[in-house]
Design a protein around this nucleic acid. Structure first.
Lengths: 184, 184, 184, 184
DNA sequence: CATGAATGAGTCTTCATTCAT
DNA sequence: GATGAATGAAGACTCATTCAT
């Protein structure tokens, strides 16, 4: 069982370590130790450290996008889907804090590489905002709407991570009504 | 020898490179080359790479705070100072894009070290929000107000940096009215 | 990989080079070349150069002490053990000239570090002298007895090393009778 | 006054630092700081660090030799000159502990360079022993006599330096009678 | 004479990657 | 599949020495 998915465990360990200490400051040896194997074993599953770094971004970026887009394209009313998307965003953050932090870090350090991935999570939000503008719900510039949406949720997550806000206190409905007010 | 203050030029070059490529991925050699000296020369001015890293954070973090707090503690009405603070925030970002990016990156990579610096830019924003809550202008939780304020402005800046938004299109008054609506 | 124990060979090469050229003037590269590996390989076996330096002192200091103390605590008469100890001293020197020189050098350069090691070779000699004083064989101050014993033997060894005296000419019994006369 | 003999002060500072920390581990900057000038100033007086290192050995080695040989070639009886030489040896050690330690260290680290200096202090002792053998006072091999003489005095000095023996307790006459007994 | 910034050749150390077992 | 010794290219840092002022 354990042995089965060494590859999976390498990815998990890497993401954890990358998000905690940074990519460059995490060594293959660190990852190997965390997984419980030796350095050489990593190379049986990945051709290079960068393959892990890139693979990780791809995997989690896609996952994040899929969760968001599925909320965005739901069946319910626009306002309900608006809330659902916020919920999906925060679920992802709180279920995988390392992953979310890793995605942010990757944006900072590998801005150029980000461009080769598509679709990105923000594309889901943009789709939601586009629809809102077309339907008249969103009255501010699309870019501001995106900046507000992502900015508020990311910062909220960071405040929780920093211990300034308790996860339990973060209410999707509060955030949804604040954002809704801001953009309409 | 070349020009007056090599030390100043080392700091500038470092900030530029750090914000572009990351701290760890910028070498002393890179910095030296950018400045036009050899590696050894760096060490006449700084005891270690980390002294540059930390010094840079201190310098710009203080500068950013000072600009913000001076807007926050201005003479005019609360609403005017609210706008002024946004203007101060964006001025800092657009005048020193590298510096702003560097500060963000530092938060990601050296979260623990950040705690030893005080006051931090966000303390100025918190002061503004506190006053707003006391005076009844701000009706959402202080943390959300902070998250909204910083989140929107940071994201707006990043969109400009990414070329998605033009700097000329960013109007302080638009952002101020969006934020004002969101928090009241 | 080459032969069985690279670690052992690193220690041997280091001691040889340290005793010939000095510690600081021996580089990791020198050691690696002597062993037939590259610099990086050294660090698989030792965390730092100083770990080699300290480890070497510990190993040979202990070995030297053990040989001496076993002669000091032998079964035979005091006078016989006196000779045996001289023999043990010189055996160590002539079997491991590098080691003996290294121990001396370490005393000169790292006097402070020496204090953290115990027991030291001189403790064996002191034990012998103590017994001699108690039993009335040794009539000079303990410190002079120690200085004479170690001083004569060390200098004799150095004269051999310098080619002034031939190893074959050094007779334990001659030295023993000289020392015996001097201290009684 | 002070400024006059910067050269002299460089030599003194160097010797002190070399004997305390080692030659390689003392930097030109260390020396400059101790003297109260900057690095560049050193090079106005000496062409290189090695010129200091070598010059220092020459100066003190000669001085030591001169003091010893003047005792050896005195007017009094052999036995008196024997004591005088011991007194001269210890005077040198206790007046310039750094110098004596430096001479020893130099022997360890630059054994090959030592050969190019002549006469060396030990030549004075050898002359004394030669005469003793010719006149029948010394009955042991010349090399042993040298080893005993130098070995005892050096070790005695080191015991004082290590705080094991008090300088006041070291009596020339005690040492002289011990040595005399040993070699006759 | 002195300063101190700068050079450049090293020195220790790290680490992604390879490979024989 | 896994191990872990070894490689080799870099990276941070040091320091004797030079030189413009």
């Amino acid at each position: 069982m354990r042995r089965k998915d060494t590859k999976e465990r390498i990815l998990e360990a890497s993401m954890k370590l990358f998000s905690e200490k940074g990519i460059r400051e995490t060594t293959i040896k660190d990852i190997a130790k965390q997984v419980g194997v030796t350095e050489g074993a990593i190379y049986r599953h990945f051709a290079s450290k960068d393959e892990i770094v890139l693979g990780l971004f791809q995997t989690y970026s896609e996952d994040f996008y899929r969760r968001l887009i599925s909320a965005v394209r739901g069946e319910s009313s626009y306002r309900e889907r608006f809330s659902e998307t916020i919920r999906a965003f925060l679920s992802f953050c709180f279920e995988n804090p390392s992953a979310f932090k890793y995605l942010s870090l990757f944006h900072y350090l590998r801005a150029k590489d980000v461009k080769s991935f598509s679709p990105l999570p923000k594309d889901a939000i943009l789709e939601l905002m586009d629809e809102g503008i077309r339907k008249g719900h969103v009255k501010v510039k699309q870019e501001y709407a995106l900046a507000l949406f992502v900015g508020l949720l990311e910062r909220t997550f960071l405040l929780v991570e920093a211990g300034i806000l308790q996860k339990e206190e973060v209410l999707v409905e509060d955030l949804a009504s604040i954002l809704w007010k801001a953009i309409s």
